[in-house]
């Protein structure tokens, strides 16, 4: 596990947040220290966005406390040390790129100079363009650039490179790593394992409003190596499948049975040796969420699905 500095920059203590009957976050505790690079993983609706909105001061928890740089994030002073991104579709269309940077910079005593911000993200030539006239990739770059304008100690990035091509994605990651090398803390949510690998050293998995796993990247990568083994067996033999070595979870999808396997090779060898009658065998990669939910559900009193 990563070392945590004495005064965490982000601290959630037993935080619960509900929307009507839906519990978005359920008794979550989490701290992020100076200089950490944390990836937040989880399916849509897992509570990632709610967690971010609490840290950004956009919402209040129903119970528990949230601290940003030691203060309540609803206090503007706490947000001096915070950098986050707008959704790229939401930039004010009539303002020019340089003006949007100036608007954000105007909130800080010592902002990054406009030229440096634009330079870091390859936006220098676009400074006089209205944001409504930018391409999707350019808007995305501007949105991420805005998160660094105030020289924040904590950068929160929600799906920073969704929809970008490979090259643009690598350019953005490099810019973020360059900034992080100066000692900043980065918290990033993503659906892409590759993005988490590029930007995170520690990974927190969230599902159904709870922290399901919190470990360093290598440990989580090992979990994410899970595979789905699909096959058709007579129903009476399904129970025997769960007993095979290496099987983490057994599920039924239409006519086929799906085994979630930590090591697919081992599972297939054991399956053949067992002599169970099966047909239509197929091995596929499991999605990250599937792997995490299956792997962590055993340790939880309530099955999230």
């Amino acid at each position: 596990m990563s070392g945590v500095s004495p005064a965490p920059l982000v601290a959630l203590d037993r935080v619960t947040r509900r929307y009507g009957d839906v519990t978005a976050l359920d008794d979550v505790s989490l701290t992020v220290g100076e200089g950490e690079m944390v990836g937040l993983l989880g399916p849509n609706g897992a509570g990632k966005s709610t967690l971010l909105s609490l840290v950004q001061g956009l919402r209040r928890p129903d119970s528990g406390t949230v601290r940003l740089c030691g203060l309540d994030p609803r206090d503007p002073a706490a947000r001096v040390g915070l950098g986050s991104t707008p959704q790229e579709t939401g930039l004010p269309a009539t303002l020019r790129v340089g003006e949007v940077v100036d608007l954000v910079a105007g909130h800080y005593r010592d902002p990054m100079p406009r030229g440096e911000v634009l330079e870091r993200f390859g936006l220098t030539d676009l400074a006089r363009r209205q944001t409504g006239g930018l391409s999707g990739g350019q808007r995305r770059r501007l949105a991420v650039a805005l998160s660094l304008v105030g020289r924040p100690r904590v950068v929160l990035l929600d799906e920073p490179t969704t929809g970008l091509d490979v090259e643009a994605r690598h350019t953005l990651w490099q810019a973020l790593r360059d900034y992080q090398a100066g000692g900043a803390t980065v918290v990033v949510t993503s659906h892409y394992l590759e993005e988490i690998e590029a930007l995170a050293r520690r990974v927190v998995v969230i599902g159904a409003g709870r922290v399901l796993a919190d470990d360093d990247l290598t440990a989580v990568l090992a979990m994410a190596a899970a595979r789905r083994v699909l096959l058709e067996v007579p129903t009476e033999h399904e129970a025997a499948l769960a007993a095979l070595p290496g099987v983490l979870d057994v599920r039924r999808e239409d006519r086929r049975t799906v085994l979630l396997a930590g090591d697919a090779d081992e599972v297939v060898r054991a399956l053949v040796r067992s002599g169970l009658p099966f047909r239509d065998l197929e091995v596929r990669g499991a999605s990250l969420e599937e792997a995490f939910l299956a792997l962590t559900s055993g340790a939880d009193p309530e099955e999230p699905r």
Partner: peptide
């Protein structure tokens, strides 16, 4: 990998603009 705690670059208390 262990993250080394880094001392804050600017120890001054965060201050918003007026």
């Amino acid at each position: 990998m262990t993250a080394t705690p880094v001392a804050p670059a600017t120890p001054a208390a965060p201050a918003t603009r007026s």
